[in-house]
């Protein structure tokens, strides 16, 4: 959205009812600033608060998520896939799978959506400082990893080796391609991309193979290393044993769970797994913590 446009639109601040507590279900308004189509069914969006004050005062921690409203259609949960180090906007990236994401898909730059958040916990950045980080992501699950990649790159000297292993079904399904290229060019990051067998194009220069197999091949050291793994349940299921084999402790493997959510506030009950509410106690868990949960994710 252009600056003139921003000025033309009166900021509307959602107000609370005035008798005490605020309405925790009330979204703030955000303007879609920029849209990038990442794959045939994935788009990412840059968003700014309609109210400039709010944009100035807004802060979140890398790894948190939000509830995004398409007015008249519904609300969906997305990871805030930008880093907390970026102050002037937030980003989200979504795959068109259902009602809300399809409506969001049709929206244009300059249009308004609702946002509630930030919710949930965040990456234990303090614990990760001074360590190597191994990022592993599959398919559309790059966003919850990407925020931390940028966080680490923005504070590059605080972290040691950074390795990224990213796989998708086909070349067309890789998201954030520009950034993958950008990371490729940097000499302070090791990046390995892979596509499932059959998903390659003639000029594909990355690897061919499933993420767990490629991980075995790459065989990153587990010394002083924290691994971040996000992907479809099946990928995580087969990646975890490989990491354990490499000598990673379950405490040093982090993942972001994507249970179905509605409120994001620990009220609606939907994301309850064992004694944990994924929206409040998560979405980020160590593999050790996940192992304690009933297998309902």
């Amino acid at each position: 959205m252009t600056e003139e446009h921003a000025a033309a639109v009166q900021p509307t601040v959602a107000h609370s009812g005035g008798n005490g507590l605020e309405n925790i279900y009330l979204p703030q308004l955000m303007v879609i600033q920029e849209i990038t189509q990442e794959t045939p069914d994935v788009k990412s969006m840059k968003l700014v608060f309609k109210d400039e004050e709010m944009q100035k005062n807004f802060s979140f921690r890398t790894g948190q998520f939000g509830e995004f409203t398409v007015f008249g259609v519904g609300e969906s949960t997305f990871n805030i896939c930008s880093s907390q180090t970026w102050k002037d906007h937030i980003e989200c990236c979504f795959r068109k799978v259902g009602r809300v994401t399809s409506a969001l898909w049709e929206m244009n730059e300059g249009e308004i959506i609702g946002f509630r958040g930030p919710y949930g916990n965040w990456y234990p950045v303090e614990k990760m400082e001074g360590q190597n980080i191994l990022f592993i992501a599959g398919g559309i699950a790059l966003p919850p990893v990407r925020c931390m990649i940028w966080h680490a790159l923005d504070m590059r000297d605080k972290f040691k080796d950074i390795t990224i292993l990213y796989g998708a079904r086909t070349v067309a399904d890789l998201v954030f391609k520009r950034e993958l290229e950008e990371w490729q060019k940097r000499d302070d990051v090791t990046i390995v991309t892979t596509v499932d067998p059959g998903g390659e194009t003639p000029d594909w220069k990355g690897k061919i193979g499933f993420v767990p197999t490629v991980l075995k091949e790459v065989s990153p050291s587990s010394d002083n290393t924290i691994a971040l793994v996000c992907g479809p349940p099946i990928m995580i299921k087969f990646t975890l044993p490989v990491l354990l084999e490499q000598g990673f402790a379950r405490e040093d493997i982090l993942t972001s769970l994507e249970n179905r959510m509605k409120c994001g506030l620990g009220k609606c009950g939907r994301c309850n797994v064992g004694k944990v509410y994924i929206c409040k106690d998560g979405p980020i868990f160590t593999a050790a913590a996940v192992a304690l949960l009933p297998e309902e994710y």
């Binding site: 007015f71 609300e75 509605k262 009220k267 609606c268 009950g269």
Partner: peptide
């Protein structure tokens, strides 16, 4: 039991967020 769903119900120039009972 207190589980709920949140839905949007729209009409031509507006709508509302509605909290409905839901259950495990």
């Amino acid at each position: 039991c207190h589980c709920f769903d949140l839905v949007d119900e729209a009409h031509y120039d507006g709508g509302a967020k509605i909290k409905n009972w839901d259950a495990c």
